[in-house]
Nucleic acid binder design. Structure first.
Lengths: 251, 251
DNA sequence: AAGTGGTCTAGACCACTAT
DNA sequence: TAGTGGTCTAGACCACTTT
């Protein structure tokens, strides 16, 4: 009985634990194992695949992380039913567009020191009227504008403005994957919004069309906000996608 | 030298590997370890924390999965700079609203058998004109409509329609976390859109306001589409959020 | 050659669940 | 009591990078 088909191939270059993950995923996606079914016990899997308990455990831990199975101490390991909520959305598409430096370009539309208004002050935990650096950028892909970015940066009068501008490029690092040592964490959120007149003009689109608004706040190592801003991205330029359940194409 | 401060507490109820993960994360979020820094080698960590190599490895593997560090064979383990692209968005908010069965309600607005039009046929890989079950649902939270769902289900004439309706409830299971054995996987995508007249009327909102459109296709174990549909969710009812980098609040 | 991460073993002991 | 998952050990061997 047991798995009948595939065993771990000990002489393969693929690690045993990874082979095991694939074997079990394959059994799920082919329907041999279905939601609610119990996996063979770890000791049974050990004997069948002729690997040590630790190797089996490692494979099962990975399946747990991937949301394929759940474990219940004393009872067994069970295949999870698919749940829509497990869907996870990434910013991959945006990343690839920006990493493609051949075809993407960042243009600074405006850069000036301004006093923080109420909203900015509240977002950045500073006093209203404090000076902040305000930057408007337009990001082009393949020659067409597709992202409009507005950002407020803490301005430190002790440092020359040149260095503040360095911060700008260091922020750019966030999006290009360069090293960055001044920022510790960030929060992001996505809203659905409608382009206003200014935005649609800049992005060369119809007024009042649908768009995503990706807002961000970045914090330094003292947990103080350093940057607040948002990207406007026309809805027809971007789409967030995700999959749930055991897809056959997965690794 | 080394970590100077915290060591793994062997007599704690928290597993050593989890303690190690927390210790290192704390060092990152406090700034003791910064982007690009190298961690002590695994053998050094073994000696310092008096645990076996496997335990260290497990902790480091977890940190790799969480995007905190990267490993380079033969060189060492390094703290990763934060990257916006690591942001991961979930449907938690939607889930919590629907799981709160006290305050949420699903109302079927329409349920009928119709011939598939071109778009439906293409999405579900069926022949134009094949019969599909068309369902319109309105989901209420705290008495207010906040999700409008339209869905097309494969109709199997060999099964009585009652069973097809069962499928409906089984799909509901997807959203309520019940067992489900007929579906294997699904793809989801999020668009930004603008409410049309029908949608805004049903959701009792202003015409042409911003909304998310969450589209889904679910497949059975033969990889055949079983359900295609989309949720319309007003933008001001929902927001997708994510964090990047080492936040102090994390486990 | 020395040091690093990567995989794996063959057990041990524990907590929990079922019977 | 027997079976299950959960943690952990004290090594081994390998591939890789640096010196």
């Amino acid at each position: 009985m047991l798995n009948q088909l595939k065993r771990v191939n000990r002489s393969s270059y693929e690690p045993s634990y990874a082979q095991l993950v694939d074997i079990i995923k394959e059994q799920v996606s082919s329907g041999k194992l279905r939601a609610g079914d119990r996996l063979p016990s770890e000791s049974q899997l050990c004997k069948f695949h002729r690997v040590s308990p630790m190797t089996i455990r490692r494979a099962i831990n990975i399946l747990v992380e991937q949301g394929i199975v759940t474990t219940e101490q004393g009872r067994g390991t069970f295949i999870k039913p698919i749940q829509v909520w497990e869907a996870v959305f990434h910013l991959d598409e945006l990343q690839h567009l920006l990493e493609d430096t051949q075809n993407s370009e960042v243009k600074i539309l405006e850069l000036r020191l301004i006093p923080a208004d109420e909203r900015t002050a509240s977002k950045m935990s500073i006093i209203i009227g404090s000076h902040v650096l305000y930057i408007r950028r337009l990001i082009y892909s393949h020659g067409k504008p597709f992202l409009y970015h507005r950002e407020f940066l803490i301005y430190d009068p002790l440092r020359p403005i040149v260095e503040s501008e360095m911060e700008v490029t260091s922020l750019k690092g966030l999006f290009k994957g360069e090293q960055n040592s001044t920022l510790k964490r960030g929060t992001l959120s996505i809203d659905a919004t409608i382009l206003n007149q200014e935005e649609s003009q800049i992005l060369k689109l119809c007024d009042r069309s649908a768009a995503f608004r990706l807002e961000h706040i970045f914090y330094d190592f003292d947990d103080k906000p350093v940057s607040w801003g948002w990207f406007i991205c026309p809805g027809n330029y971007l789409r967030f996608t995700a999959t749930v359940g055991a897809s056959n194409q997965e690794t």
